[in-house]
């Protein structure tokens, strides 16, 4: 049991502060891009930036980076499900309208 517990990775304060700074920087960037009238880029860019922010939170704040491979695989299954559901729903919407 003890061996399992002492293995826990401790993420240092500076790393967490750097991630926080990056998150604030990306928020500043996405707000700056809002309403700039760059066509479909205005829709895609916020989603891309949000995904980078979500990745930073999941990887560092939620410690996914330091977890075993199993956690990463189940996340991949979730993301794969998202892709399939989006594809199916968009097919259906395209068919109806």
């Amino acid at each position: 049991m003890d061996a399992k517990e002492t293995k826990a990775h401790i993420v240092g304060y500076p790393v967490l502060l750097a991630v926080w700074a990056a998150l604030l920087g990306l928020t500043w960037l996405t707000v700056g891009l809002s309403g700039t009238g760059l066509g479909s880029f205005v829709i895609v860019a916020p989603f891309l930036i949000a995904s980078v922010k979500a990745f930073l939170v999941v990887d560092y704040f939620m410690h996914l980076k330091y977890e075993s491979g199993f956690f990463k695989y189940i996340l991949l299954i979730v993301l794969g499900t998202v892709v399939v559901v989006v594809w199916l729903v968009y097919q259906d919407v395209a068919y109806r309208y």
Partner: peptide
């Protein structure tokens, strides 16, 4: 404590997406 943190971070991740779709995509 870690699991409580995981829940809080998920709430944050969800807001990371809700914020742009309601306030920024315009």
């Amino acid at each position: 404590l870690e699991n409580s943190g995981l829940y809080w971070h998920l709430v944050d991740v969800i807001w990371i997406y809700l914020f742009p779709i309601f306030y920024l995509i315009r």
